[in-house]
Write a protein that binds this DNA or RNA. Structure first.
Length: 464
RNA sequence: GGCGCCGUGGCGGAGUGGCUACGCAGCGGCCUGCAAAGCCGUUUACUCCGGUUCGAGUCCGGACGGCGCCUCCA
């Protein structure tokens, strides 16, 4: 084990991860708002934090990963109204899709996936505390956070307070004067015409604002002052700034120690289908989305994880079909290499490359550099092709990426394919190469590639 | 306009004050009926201009270019 450092947005530098009691590490990552099916961009944080959990556990920590589901939100009301369905039904449907789509990534589930709609009591209690402490105020059923009462406001996103505005939804003229200060943001929104879900609070009927939902859900499951808060870097301001401010003012403590932010997926306006140069963040509002389940169905989860792991999590990442094809080739390289490894430990001389892999992960979870070490290990393994090489190191490394399946024995070809292979061998023996090649093409159409080796032909499953 | 990030070889993408990242693709060779896989060899780098330094893609300043946030967004 060694020191693990992670980039902290607040300080702008790498900070050592300091675990809590008994080596416990709590991670809270902002999950999706469920008003439509998620796109591959939404999957990046899911993958990054799921893999981070694996790595931290490997390093001896007990990890609790929480990824929330925002199921009460303006966007959900709007989408449900457009579809003429109850907003709660739409949210439930899309939450189910979200779980199925991320299940297909094969990385397991987070330890907790709280719903905003099931956290209303803690949310109301948190708002009440803020009002009691003078950091929030109720006006005509709305409740607003008094931004200027927090001297540290802006410290996460490092913005000067006078250069900010909360924007929020278009404010009707009748509401324009509700806020004491334009900077103040809503903790509770009074029920409005057309909204079909409502909860009761001391200051009136309504529903929570987005930011307070996360503060409450995180505290419920991880307490205050947990180790890592994550999310996309588009959430730094205002979402995470507001989350941090709410908890700071209500609890006199910081919500999280390290604020991690992953970079955006960049994609062309076509959604990455046409090979155009990526030129903008993938986003539902831009219409340039590639849906997660479509990408997984087309290229497989191995390739998508390989793509994500191929770049540092903080960097923006280009996404398109060409890059998925390249990721698929990397997957094939690993699987081809793993074939032929024997059970057991790897040669000690190859240990430094395994160690380099983990050292890279300890240095701000640099999966790209780690993958470089993994491929160097593979190259070294091939140079030793005349001696048995244990798969131990490779399985250990691949497990960090959720790709250990690449080192496992693939399924055997079916009887039909075996029959075709035997027919091809017969044709080869008869030097009827035209027929042999035809049978090889036929096997390829079945998804199996023929590789003739010293010990006879072998059938190898073609990646995706 | 403000804040932040980035600019590496055909493409993707790490890293580092002096030593081949890595992957994909290309080229030559070995192997092979031909392929595939693999091996050997090999081509192509650090946006530009100043500065610091014995030495800078690597640090500092500037220019140009790109991206994110500043309104919902992973």
């Amino acid at each position: 084990m060694g020191t693990i450092r992670l980039h902290d947005t607040r300080s702008g530098e790498l900070r050592e991860l300091v675990a809590g009691a008994d080596g416990h590490v709590g991670i809270y990552a902002c999950g999706p708002t469920v008003y439509a099916r998620i796109h591959v961009g939404n999957a990046r944080p899911f993958v990054v934090y799921s893999l981070l959990k694996r790595f931290l556990e490997h390093e001896g920590h007990a990890v609790t990963l929480v990824i929330n589901i925002t199921d009460v939100n303006d966007k959900i009301y709007a989408a449900a109204a457009a579809l003429q369905v109850p907003s709660a039904d739409l949210a439930a449907e899309m939450a189910a899709h979200y779980k199925a789509d991320t299940d297909a990534l094969g990385l397991g589930r987070p330890d907790a996936e709280p719903l905003a709609s099931e956290t209303i009591e803690p949310i109301v209690a948190l708002i009440a505390d803020l009002i009691d402490r003078g950091h929030a105020y109720a006006v005509d059923g709305d409740v607003y956070f008094r931004v200027r009462s927090d001297a540290c406001y802006g410290s996460l996103s490092r913005r000067a307070i006078d250069e900010m505005n909360q924007g929020e939804e278009p404010v009707p003229p009748s509401h324009a004067d509700r806020k004491e200060d334009p900077l103040d943001f809503a903790l509770w929104k009074a029920h409005k015409e057309g909204e079909d879900t409502v909860w009761f609070a001391p200051w009136g009927r309504g529903r929570p604002g987005w930011h307070i939902e996360c503060s409450a859900m995180a505290e419920q499951l991880l307490g205050v002052g947990f180790e890592i808060h994550g999310g996309g870097n588009d959430l730094v301001f205002p979402h995470h700034e507001n989350e941090a401010a709410q908890t700071r003012m209500a609890r006199d403590a910081e919500l999280a120690q390290i604020w991690m932010h992953n970079g955006m997926l960049q994609v062309a306006a076509s959604g990455g289908k046409m090979g155009d140069d990526p030129d903008a963040k993938m986003g539902k509002s831009l219409g340039n989305v590639a849906l997660l389940h479509e990408v997984v169905e087309e290229f497989g989860r191995n390739a998508l994880i390989m793509l994500f792991a191929g770049a540092h999590y903080r960097q923006p990442m280009a996404f398109d079909d060409m890059r998925m094809m390249e990721a698929l080739a990397r997957v094939a390289r690993v699987r081809d290499s793993a074939r032929g490894l024997v059970a057991g430990e790897s040669p000690p001389e190859m240990r430094p490359l395994r160690d380099a892999f983990f050292a890279a992960l300890r240095d701000d979870f640099n999966t790209a550099a780690a993958l470089g070490a993994l491929f160097e290990w593979i190259n070294e393994r091939h140079k030793r092709r005349d001696e048995p090489v244990g798969r131990g190191d490779l399985v250990e490394m691949l497990s960090m990426l959720g790709l250990q399946n690449l080192a496992e024995h693939g399924s055997e070809a079916g009887a039909e394919e075996q029959e075709l292979l035997e027919q091809r061998e017969a044709a080869r023996s008869a030097r009827n190469y035209a027929e042999a090649d035809r049978l090889r093409d036929e096997l390829r159409a079945h998804g199996w590639e023929v590789r003739d080796g010293p010990d006879g032909p072998e059938l190898v499953r073609i990646e995706q």
